[in-house]
Each structure stands twice: as structure tokens, then as C-alpha cells.
Design a protein around this nucleic acid. Structure first.
Lengths: 334, 334
DNA sequence: ATATGCTCCGTGACCGGTCACGTAAGCCTA
DNA sequence: TAGGCTTACGTGACCGGTCACGGAGCATAT
């Protein structure tokens, strides 16, 4: 005998069980639970008591199936090991939860198209920070709207919250100039531009445009170690540099550490600036000056796009766009 | 007229549409899609082609509803702003996604019971790191199993992945002694023990037990600033201390920063050790020595509990427990 | 007395899949 | 050529909710 005696089948408590126990119909139970009208207070109380006694809890799948709505959005980022993404996720969860949406998270480690595909089958929308070209992963969504972070939407059904790096970086550079910066340099991220052979990341391009003159740039892996190495290389290439912008805070923190081990004073001898605005930037000495990407605002804007998307019945065919301008966050390193 | 002309209703492509278009029955479509037997290769190909043409994608909710299983677990943490939680989430998403489970995340900012309640209605299980006493939030789960992180399960239906701080901390202290540490001190977290008036966090208790003799402890808020202040206070209280353990890496990084601004050499004059093992510990100078909480292992163990929970039909009534032993991660600060 | 209105509650169909069956066609054997 | 077996496919019920109805019961108006 392979299977033992029929042990208690773990049958779920359904709305019918509650209805039977309370001596009412299913619909009445629904009315009680969902606080709908057309039910007497007395009956509602009795039903709710039964619900409590039986430990009934509604099945989300049945609800979504019959209501034809999911109220879940998927968030896809590269990794939470970069605190910026984590902070972004934090802001999203807070923002969306306050609007009574659920957030499913996934990481694109095994390919962005895969992540999108698996999200698309269970969410109403996908928010994400992607590296691959849009044509790679957008079709995988099969019609589920996508909100791109920090990138520009170029396909139908794709929306975006863009970052105005042009303004942000140029403001930052101007302020640095006012503080005395003359020779600028940058540590760019090699992973930031897998899309083609363009001259570096957009951040780099806007930086070069803002600086106006020649400025040296090195490219390193997007990590703390990359920042350490990048700073060293930069100083080798030109010992006269007095200001270094890093692709992100992680790399900037590496740069600060590199400066420390080289005995280079920050910000006395060299100013170091990051991009992101992670709170961890306060954990180092000197604390990190950075171009804050305003995760709260980005999250709120993305949420407002979602709200607009699902408000009108006829799904807007036009791409919805919001723009957030990064703001310098002055701490000690610059 | 309030509603305009009936625009194209966004009707979803269902399995019936595919069946009709391919000239077969629903069941045959199912067979084709799910790679079931009892279907000819020819028919399967034709159906799949139709699926492609119509852009059909199966509805996860209908599937889960009829198959009677969910595939979703909820993860609840305090905030992703603490990189440790973010790293934990990262490990979980990776681990659970590889097992084809979906991860819903939520934060307990608006009360742990609330977070649990909203999770419970849509997941098969809840994994979380909680601060309140279990009696506060466990009932809100309404029978959905909970896996506690770092805490001991004391209620039925609650399971746990515990951390053997006794061993981990005592190993760490022993190793520090071998390196010459004599006067130990600790910066505890005030938020870590809201449950009662016990003498500090478990980490502190095991630390005091391991040190064996009197050692001074200050309590600070769980933040970078708390670490800075804590270090300062500690040095005020006893200038002779040579080793400081912080409640977590965030506070330890603050302590390192505090030492830096006070001109105290780390680790030459004072060794500083954190608890968590976040990768950001590498971003500071000196890099942070810490007791690693092994997020990967914790995630894997929690997943194995879930697997066990849902493998056997009769849900085990006993609490399932795994234990992970933290391991010292030697970097530069100690 | 019937008509009208309101409150409260129940019934059947449906959401989009899956499962347990049933059945027709083709092949082989006796 | 009847019987049995296999293969390929279709049908009705069901998962657990929701929605659009319909109807009973009672009070008030006519």
C-alpha cells in the first residue's frame, strides 16, 4: 500500500463553507466581507463571526480571475546588492503599497527577457531598470505595459520616467567650478553601455558636454573595486586632476577609498562626486557628495504613470513620460 | 453622454479563442501548450502556431486556481535602506525564483500585523524579519505559515531559520583575543529589543557571555549616526578599549567613521567589528571586518523549509527549524 | 384591495484554465 | 469481421470567487 489512509485532506475553507455555516448564500458572504451594501448589520456580524471561526481567507486568484484585475506590478532590477536599486525598491514598495498595489520583485540576472516574460504573466504592469535594448525584452511582455526607469521609451506600450542628467550634471559641474574645480575626470562604468559602441554612458556624455573641454575618462567595472582602480588609473594618467565624477555612488565610494590608500586628501587635493544619492554615502569619511537621483520622486512619478494607465478604459497608445531632475547633494567629499 | 463609443474592449486572448482558431478543443490546446501526451505532433505544431499568431498567453491566476496551488511567497522586512535586508532580499529572490516561486515584498513600516495580513491573502507562505512579539502579528496570518528569520518560533504554524549567535560571536571574540584584544566594548541597537526590558539584544547577551568579564555597552539608534555617536561615547567612558563590536554593519561603519574623525587609528588603536557581512563593508577604509550572517545560506534554508512544508500533504504541525552559524569575515578593521 | 417602493437576500452564469472521463478512428489479431 | 487495444481528440464539471439578475418580505401610498 503506497498511500496511507486518507489523512485529513487540507481542503481550503471556501466562501461556500462560510455560507453554509452561517446559513446564508455565497453572495451574502461576499457582501459581508467586501463591505458592500444590501446587507443588514446583524447578518454581516454573524457572517464575520463565522469567517473568524472557520479561519476563512479569500483566495486571491479566484478574486483576480473573476474581477479580471490583478493589482500587482512587477519590479525588475539588476541586483539589490547595489544599494541604489535597493533604495529604489524601497521607495516603490512604499509608494505602491500605499495605493494598495502589490509588488512582485525579480532580478534580471538570468536575462531581461526571461524576467519580463515571467512577470508579464502575473502582473498588470512592469517597472524596471534595463540595460539591454528595448527590442530585446519588450516583446516578452506580450502587451503588458512597461515603465522604463532612467531610459527613454521608444516603443509603443512602453513608458518611462527619465532622468534629466543634462541639467543635473551641468548644475553639479557649475557648482564644482564655483568651488574651484579646474581639471575634471570621470570613472565611467563598463556595464552601463552594452547597447552599442557609443562613446560611453549618457552620464559620461553629459559630463563631457558640461565640462566643455578635454577631460580624461577611464572605464571600470561597476563595483567598489572598480572605483578603487579607476581612481588610481586616473591619477596615473594625470596627477593634476582636482575633481572626479564616478558613474555611481558605489564606484565613488571605491574612489574615496582608493584616494585614502594613496594618501590623497579628499576633498582637499581631489574632490570626489558620485551619482545616486544612496544613504550609505554618509557611512564613509569623508561623507560622499553626490548627484541624488531622488528615488522617492521617481517612484511617485512611476506610480502616477500607472495610475494614468489604468484610469482610462481605452489604454492610451501614446507613451507616457515623466522627467525627474537629479539634484546635487552636498556632503563632505566635494 | 458620459462614456464614449464602446472602444475596442481589451478582451484577453483565451484558450478558447486559440481552440476555435485552430479548429480543436480547449483540452487539445492545453495538451499542446503543456507538452502533454495524447496529441499528434502535427496538431501540436498547428496549435502552437495559432498561439503565436494570436499572442495568447496563459492566465496565471486561472492556472493556479484550477491547479490549486500558488507559487508565491511574501517577504517582509523593515526596510531596504539597510543593505543587509536588501542583500537578504536579493538572496531570497534568487533562491526562490530558481525554484519557480514568485516573491512579493512588503515592508513593515506601517505595522507588522498589517503587513502580514495583506500578505497572507495572496501568498502561500510568509518569510520575514520581525521585531514585535510573535503574538502581535502571527494571528494576522490566518493560518498561512510563517518563517521567522533570526528568531525562534514559539507558536504553532510558525517556523524559523535561527542564527547561532552564541557560536558565531564566541568564535569571533576568541579570534580577536588571539589577535591581542583585551578590552571589549559594544554599541548595541536600541530598536533591537522592543519586546521587553530584557538586558539588550541577544547579540549583546552572547557578546557579554563570550567576553566573560565586565565590558561596557552603549545603546544607540540603529543607523550610521548611531554608530558615530556610540563610538564617541564609548571612548569617553573608557579610553582604554581596544575592540568594539557594533550591533550591525551599518553602525560599525558609523563607528569607523567616528574613529576617523576622532583621529583614532583603526585597527591599530581600536579594532572595530560589525555584524551582517554586507558587501558595502568593502567600501570604507579600512574595510570592515564583520560577522557574516550568510544571507545565501539563510535564504536556501528558508526555501528548504518551504519545500518541506508544501511537499507533504498533511501540513506538519511541528515547527520546522534550521540553524545557520555566522562566520567571521576578516577584512581590515580588525 | 392593489400598487409602489425599499431593504435584504438567493440563483445561475461566468472568469480561464485543468481534470476525469467518454468516444471515434485506426491497427492488429484470431 | 468481430473483438480488443492504442492513439487522438472532445465534453462536462470544477477550482473559488464575482456579477447581473430576480424575488421575497414589509411598509407606505392610492
Amino acid at each position: 500500500m503506497t498511500t496511507g489512509a486518507p489523512s485529513t485532506p487540507p481542503t481550503r475553507v471556501t466562501i461556500r463553507d462560510v455560507a453554509r455555516a452561517a446559513g446564508v448564500s455565497r453572495q451574502t458572504v461576499t457582501r459581508a466581507i467586501n463591505e458592500m451594501p444590501e446587507i443588514s448589520e446583524e447578518t454581516r456580524a454573524r457572517v464575520m463571526r463565522t469567517v473568524e471561526e472557520l479561519g476563512y481567507r479569500p483566495n486571491r486568484f479566484a478574486i483576480d480571475l473573476s474581477r479580471q484585475r490583478t493589482h500587482a506590478v512587477g519590479l525588475i532590477v539588476g541586483t539589490f546588492r547595489n544599494p541604489y536599486y535597493a533604495q529604489l525598491a524601497d521607495a516603490f514598495v512604499a509608494e505602491l503599497r500605499s495605493r494598495d498595489w502589490q509588488v512582485l520583485v525579480s532580478m534580471a540576472s538570468q536575462g531581461e527577457a526571461d524576467a519580463v516574460r515571467s512577470m508579464a504573466s502575473q502582473t498588470d504592469a512592469i517597472i524596471g531598470y534595463f540595460l539591454e535594448p528595448q527590442t530585446n525584452f519588450v516583446p516578452a511582455a506580450r502587451g503588458v505595459p512597461i515603465v522604463l526607469l532612467e531610459d527613454q521609451a521608444t516603443m509603443p506600450g512602453v513608458h518611462s520616467v527619465e532622468l534629466d542628467f543634462r541639467t543635473g550634471i551641468s548644475d553639479m559641474v557649475a557648482a564644482l567650478r564655483a568651488k574651484g574645480s579646474r581639471r575634471f575626470a570621470m570613472i565611467d562604468a563598463s556595464s552601463a553601455n552594452p547597447k552599442g559602441t557609443a562613446p560611453g554612458s549618457p552620464r559620461r556624455q553629459f559630463f563631457e558636454a558640461a565640462v566643455g573641454e578635454e577631460c580624461i575618462v577611464v572605464t571600470e567595472p561597476e563595483s567598489i573595486a572598480g572605483g578603487v582602480d579607476g581612481f588610481r588609473r586616473l591619477l596615473d594618467l594625470d596627477p593634476e586632476i582636482d575633481t572626479v565624477l564616478a558613474f555611481n555612488d558605489l564606484m565613488a565610494m571605491g574612489a574615496v577609498q582608493g584616494a585614502h590608500t594613496l594618501g590623497v586628501d579628499v576633498p582637499g587635493r581631489v574632490r570626489i562626486v558620485g551619482i545616486d544619492g544612496i544613504s550609505l554615502g554618509e557611512a564613509i569619511s569623508p561623507t560622499l557628495t553626490t548627484l541624488s537621483l531622488e528615488t522617492q520622486t521617481v517612484a511617485a512619478q512611476a506610480a502616477s504613470i500607472l495610475a494614468e494607465l489604468f484610469a482610462g478604459e481605452p489604454m492610451p497608445s501614446r507613451s507616457l513620460t515623466r522627467t525627474v531632475t537629479p539634484v546635487p547633494l552636498w556632503r563632505e567629499s566635494a
